[in-house]
Amino acid sequence: MSETSYRDISLNGLWKNNPAIVQLLGLCPLLAVTGSVINAIGMALATIFVLTVSNTCVSLIRNITSDAVRLPAFVMIIAAAVTCIELLMQAFAYELFQILGIFLPLITTNCVILGRADAFASKNPLLPSMYDGFIMGCGFAVVLILLGAMREVVGTGAIFANMDLLFGESAANWKIVLFDDYTEFLVAILPPGAFIFTGLIIALKNLIDTEIKRREAAKADTSAPSSRRVRVTGHIS
Score class of each variant (00 low, 15 high):
236 I>H: 12
208 I>Q: 04
68 A>C: 01
185 F>H: 03
67 D>T: 06
172 A>D: 02
156 T>N: 12
133 G>V: 07
37 V>L: 10
151 R>F: 02
233 T>P: 02
107 I>K: 02
74 F>D: 07
195 F>N: 00
80 A>Q: 02
108 T>I: 15
73 A>C: 09
102 I>S: 09
141 A>K: 11
136 M>C: 13
222 T>K: 15
76 M>F: 09
104 L>V: 12
21 I>Y: 05
68 A>T: 07
114 L>T: 13
12 N>F: 03
187 V>F: 13
136 M>G: 08
164 D>W: 10
195 F>D: 01
145 I>H: 10
146 L>Q: 09
182 Y>Q: 02
223 S>F: 14
148 G>D: 05
176 I>H: 07
187 V>K: 01
160 F>Q: 01
102 I>H: 00
107 I>Y: 03
48 I>G: 01
2 S>M: 02
144 L>Q: 14
93 A>D: 02
139 G>D: 10
124 N>Q: 14
223 S>R: 13
103 F>T: 07
105 P>F: 02
2 S>A: 03
124 N>R: 13
84 C>I: 15
175 K>G: 04
29 P>S: 10
139 G>S: 07
11 L>N: 04
23 Q>P: 06
123 K>G: 03
195 F>A: 11
119 A>G: 01
91 A>G: 09
237 S>A: 14
141 A>V: 13
231 R>H: 06
67 D>H: 03
107 I>W: 03
182 Y>H: 14
71 L>A: 05
67 D>E: 15
41 I>G: 04
59 S>M: 11
